[in-house]
């Protein structure tokens, strides 16, 4: 279904794992998500104020969060590769490489605009709704429509 031109962008976000998860085994991702949502709220990463402070260089907080998350992530991935750690199902861990296209620049800038306006990346949107700010449902629907509109016009955009 993919022509060659679209190959890079069409498959990103689609995972390599060949093991089909049943509904029940998906529950473990629900648990990781719950844990993650609690961290988001308790560290105030979903706060609009924190994002403004980050982009106006008024606080080190978000740089500390993202920086230390990346350090832990880099070390973990290197350990997984070096020791060839397998998944709990015994599958070899595979991480899809990211291929460069101009979308990372144009789309990146657009997401940056949206991030500074809403104070949220996609993950925090879900957590913000959970904390009871129900109007963010509108932001989420708008983000879904934004994704849909990208899918509609992607072949006309520079990549």
């Amino acid at each position: 279904m993919n022509n060659l031109e679209n190959k890079n962008t069409d498959t990103e976000g689609i995972n390599g794992s060949q093991i089909k998860d049943s509904g029940f085994s998906n529950l473990k991702y629900l648990l990781v998500g719950i844990f993650f949502g609690i961290v988001f709220v308790k560290a105030e990463i979903i706060s609009w104020f924190r994002i403004q402070e980050m982009f106006q260089l008024q606080s080190f907080f978000m740089y500390g969060v993202i920086g230390s998350a990346v350090v832990v992530g880099v070390i973990s991935v290197q350990i997984i590769k070096k020791f060839n750690i397998k998944t709990i199902q015994g599958e070899k861990i595979e991480i899809q490489p990211k291929t460069f296209n101009k979308g990372q620049i144009y789309g990146g800038l657009m997401f940056g605009f949206g991030w500074a306006i809403t104070g949220a990346c996609p993950g925090p949107l879900f957590a913000q709704i959970g904390t009871g700010v129900t109007v963010i449902v509108v932001t989420l629907i708008s983000a879904i429509l934004g994704t849909w509109f990208y899918g509609l016009i992607k072949d006309k955009l520079p990549h």
């Binding site: 997401f111 509109f149 990208y150």
Partner: peptide, 8 residues
């Protein structure tokens, strides 16, 4: 929200 969804 639209910029977040389209941009990402």
């Amino acid at each position: 929200g639209f910029l977040v969804g389209f941009g990402t």
